[in-house]
Design a protein around this nucleic acid. Sequence first.
DNA 1: TAGTACTTTCAGAAATAATTGAAAATACGG
DNA 2: CCGTATTTTCAATTATTTCTGAAAGTACTA
Lengths: 171, 171
Amino acid sequence: MGAELKSAKEKFVESWGQMGGAWGINRTMARMHALLMISDKPLTADDIMAELAVSRGNASMNLRALVDWGLVRRTSLPRDRKEYFASEKDIWTICCRIARERKKREIEPVIGAIDECLKEAGGDKEAAAFRKKLNELLELVRLLDFVLGKVGNQEKAAVLPKVLTLLKAMA
Amino acid sequence: MGAELKSAKEKFVESWGQMGGAWGINRTMARMHALLMISDKPLTADDIMAELAVSRGNASMNLRALVDWGLVRRTSLPRDRKEYFASEKDIWTICCRIARERKKREIEPVIGAIDECLKEAGGDKEAAAFRKKLNELLELVRLLDFVLGKVGNQEKAAVLPKVLTLLKAMA
DNA sequence: TAGTACTTTCAGAAATAATTGAAAATACGG
DNA sequence: CCGTATTTTCAATTATTTCTGAAAGTACTA
């Protein structure tokens, strides 16, 4: 591979890791995802360890997390005992998976927590302002939940331009 | 304040902090934001230090960050030398500010980084697949940028139901 | 089913992020 | 301006997260 291309790929992997960090995702996990996304063939744990300079344990755990998120698949080659890992290739599908997981892991628990707070706050007049604020927040969080639910259930790449059109109409 | 209400408020503050953490935001900053959101009057740094059990330095730095994000305003009372802090109260405005800042801080840099990678990758046939993938990602990140831009520029609470309607139409 | 190639696990180590607290800076009222 | 109340800064500390590496676990194959 040309030196320029190699360097560009490395830069991309690092940037993707950086971004992951800003959104609360393990930086190494994001780098692994980036590496697999731009790889034209499945990689083994050893390939990834070499490329990103991480330990076997780290590679194993983060690859498992990527599989749990539905972003990476395990595959195997005939006459080869090793496991290979391949990223989901379709960008829109990646987007759906991330939406689905974040909804489940981070939005739904918040809805539950606000509900509990509402219950605990009771019906006193004293709590009225607090209840009002919680209900407003709940409305917003439910909107986000709804949006992520929509996105997460789509499977076809064709939906992307549709969303774009709708949003443009939003003015 | 009733013990139940107090406990409900504390629970809410902790939950909001938890959620912040999951999205890459300092937990204490998120807790301060929650506390100010549900407070019916502005609070001083001392109030916040007492309520959340944090040091003066920590309070000062995180309050400044909240002001930078446009989520909290400094105010002052006549015949009182102390500074008071008040959260923006309108939920939709809060949402806009967050969208605007995250776009600026986290989406725009990624667009820049991908552009740079594209430039560095060069036009070789060898780099074709990589360029294709980067362009797909760029398209997606730009969509997100566009959405956050739209949301971030709205100022009226009336927009919320409008978005909801559009999204419901999305099927 | 024994040997080997590979993977997972997890306690401890290392790296990173958050927090403290006290000194320095600031700004207010007299 | 002076003295003081208040806020900010930042080096040092503490807490948290991430990572390592070797032992334990799995599963292929001969």
